[in-house]
Design a protein around this nucleic acid. Structure first.
Lengths: 220, 220
DNA sequence: AAAAAGACTTACCAAAAGGTAAAAAATGAT
DNA sequence: ATCATTTTTTACCTTTTGGTAAGTCTTTTT
């Protein structure tokens, strides 16, 4: 029989998926706040509203769970770390258009996935024990391509003679900081939470900085 | 007898100080790499080359030790987070001079105290449980003053109409990232370690970005 | 309806972690 | 030299943690 082997969507398998993603969300929140070692399986189970043993049934150990949280995150993340990814970018676009979109999307990631960003940050700060491989195999090639692209822009006189590598480092830092260091900003801005409005101002500010840096005119 | 009560510098007290700072350095390294929960007293003791019990004799619990690491750090740190601190700054200086010095000093902190920076970063990302008070009482007042200063610069037409709060956030992020995310950069730059040369390029790049952002002419 | 597979619980357990208490050793003051 | 103080070690102890093993209950398949 030449039927396509599709996983059957039984009640069980649906529940399983739902529960798995509930666990992953709970784990993400905890890993973001307490780091890997600071988050116990017990605490994650409680947050996901199941028993510890049941959690272990779904993720048979902590490291595995952590890696799943990381990779779920990276699927969304890394893709948007590139200038030239599927999502609408185009070689025909001007540097200004591309960079504006890039900053906007990075900023959106910080707003929509602050916990993922924090887990990632903890991981990198800790020396990327679980992620180094991934950075080498996935992020670096993308980075190299993007650096080359910026260099051609410079050669063609489309942007100022900036340092491409450090341009990326600065954009990443300036955007991710709104997820990772949000607590510090809340204190300094005297607000209980960063709101949509703050992210809008942040996006405008960062975009303006970058536009001036690359030598594009700011929108009036 | 009107002799000034100076702590006697016996062999013991000298050793004590030396050992204490050895412990603090060892703890800083571990907290930077593994975070608070990930660093056991045992591991810190081993790193400091003493027994766990002896470590506990010097710092009677882990939280205390952690707080000492944090505050040692902050003494150096927070001071330099301000535009107008003792160290040579002057109201007579132009914005360009002040900001250049500021970026340079922030960059130096990242180069000289990467571990302190990482401990700080872990702490803030985790919601600053031990540090929030301090941020409110020490950092915020300084920040408010600096923001006002930038606003007067804007009013006087000395710099472009930038967003002062977010200018600071961007500068902090862009400089601290060279401590906190050094592993990522090492991967992307294909180097085993960031070297003096990388920090120099970074400093130039970041300084240029900021100079363009505030509307100062870049040195030729 | 029975068998098989999957989901969840109960009962444990060994190792690690953060300590406490008290004795022993080293150093300092008189 | 002796007594007091400071430093270091030895001996435990409790709680937490990540996990195993095995059984029960539920859903799916046949």
């Amino acid at each position: 029989m030449a039927t396509v082997k599709t996983a059957k969507r039984t009640r069980q398998s649906i529940n399983r998926e739902e529960l798995e993603s509930r666990i992953l969300r709970a784990a993400e929140v905890l890993f973001a706040e307490k780091g890997y070692s600071g988050s116990s399986m017990e605490a994650i189970a409680v947050a996901a509203n199941i028993s510890k043993q049941n959690l272990i049934y779904y993720f048979k150990n902590k490291e595995l769970l952590y890696k799943r949280v990381l990779t779920e995150m990276l699927d969304v993340w890394i893709e948007k770390l590139s200038f030239l990814e599927k999502n609408g970018a185009d070689h025909q676009d001007t540097p200004e258009v591309i960079i504006r979109r890039y900053v906007r999307e990075k900023m959106q990631l910080s707003r929509l996935y602050p916990n993922g960003s924090k887990v990632f940050a903890h991981e990198i700060i800790s020396g990327a024990p679980m992620l180094k491989e991934y950075l080498v195999s996935h992020l670096k090639p993308q980075f190299d391509r993007d650096v080359i692209l910026v260099k051609t822009w410079i050669d063609e006189g489309l942007v100022e003679n900036i340092d491409p590598e450090h341009l990326f480092f600065t954009i990443w830092a300036a955007t991710q900081t709104y997820a990772d260091f949000s607590v510090q900003m809340e204190v300094l801005l005297g607000k209980p939470r960063l709101e949509a409005e703050d992210f809008e101002r942040a996006e405008i500010a960062v975009t303006d900085f970058v536009m001036r840096a690359i030598g594009a005119k700011t929108k009036e």
